[in-house]
């Protein structure tokens, strides 16, 4: 009568080892450094407070026709409302430049592309990678064409933000006439390749999405063809720098409005197994005593 014990033990062991032998259950891990220290954090209260901007350029001065940026380096503009205050007005402006939607890129995020009104966003840039926030005011030398510090790219991004702020944000607290009274925090993500920053999005349904901003380029390609060795570098893609918003981790805050399950499924199985074993053992001991 030793078989029930053996069966129970086999069951317990097989349940315990199942997650380790099944490859599909192994999560994909990225290089995310989990942090709660966000350089800028806030709530996007309206869909129009998160803007995807694809740059357009004039083809010539006569017909005034425009073309889309062939590299599609988009600027994401966030008008963030401070979590601490009680109003729903945007208090800070964050612009992230150089992000494109590249399907099939490693860990490319679809969540990033979808608007999530009411979601809480957090952003930081990685100082180790050499990326820094550029705080731009209307009179900053970086957007003043007569200044030696003038940067045309940043100036373009600032003008875009200004345009969108006027168009979409009906908030008198952000403006003094037509001038912004808060700085625009610009992250130009294309200067370095690798992980250049992090982002977090907490949706209204308490889903937490953690991700990276990773810049790819000639020295860090995304697509290299089915055979890599030897592979001519000029055929890699991309041959320009481009940032991909990746989501590395998706989890959830405890949801109080739904059924709360605060135990692991595997522990339930193990408990059943152990109970069966104890039950069999007791039965066996009793029989021996008799």
């Amino acid at each position: 009568m030793k078989y029930p014990k053996v069966i129970c033990l086999t069951l317990v062991l097989s349940f315990l080892f199942t997650p380790f032998v099944n490859d599909n259950l192994t999560p994909i891990s990225g290089e995310l450094i989990f942090t709660e220290n966000w350089d800028y954090k806030g709530v996007v209260n309206q869909q129009s407070h998160r803007v995807k901007y694809i740059p357009i350029f004039p083809t010539d001065g006569v017909t005034k026709s425009v073309i889309e940026d062939p590299y599609r380096l988009r600027t994401f503009i966030f008008f963030l409302d401070d979590i601490e205050d009680n109003d729903t007005n945007p208090d800070s402006i964050v612009a992230l430049h150089g992000i494109n939607e590249i399907r099939n890129a490693p860990l490319a995020s679809l969540f990033w592309e979808e608007p999530a009104p009411g979601a809480e966003y957090g952003f930081n840039v990685s100082a180790e990678s050499g990326i820094e926030w550029i705080d731009v005011w209307d009179d900053s030398p970086i957007v003043n064409s007569s200044s030696s510090q003038y940067n045309q790219e940043i100036d373009f991004i600032y003008r875009r933000v200004l345009l969108k702020a006027i168009a979409f944000v009906s908030n008198p607290f952000l403006f003094d006439g037509l001038d912004l009274i808060v700085p625009v925090h610009i992250a130009y993500l294309l200067n370095r390749t690798g992980v250049v920053g992090h982002w977090q999005q907490i949706n209204k349904d308490q889903t937490i999405i953690n991700g990276n901003f990773t810049t790819y380029g000639p020295d860090n390609p995304i697509f290299v063809g089915p055979t890599h060795d030897p592979y001519p570098e000029d055929e890699w893609w991309p041959n320009f720098n481009i940032t991909v918003a990746q989501n590395v981790d998706r989890t959830s805050r405890p949801r109080t409005h739904s059924l709360e399950v605060d135990f692991q499924f595997i522990s339930v199985l193990a408990t059943i197994g152990i109970t069966l074993t104890i039950f069999t053992l007791i039965k066996r001991i009793r029989r021996i005593k008799r």
Binding site: Y71, N104, F223, G225, P226, T227, P232, W237
Partner: peptide, 26 residues
Amino acid sequence: HWEVLYYPSPLYEEIRSNLVHNIPVY
């Protein structure tokens, strides 16, 4: 060798409308 065809190549822009998915072509 295998080459990657993707934007901003004008050829990719030309054929893109015929592809179901907007992904690179090896």
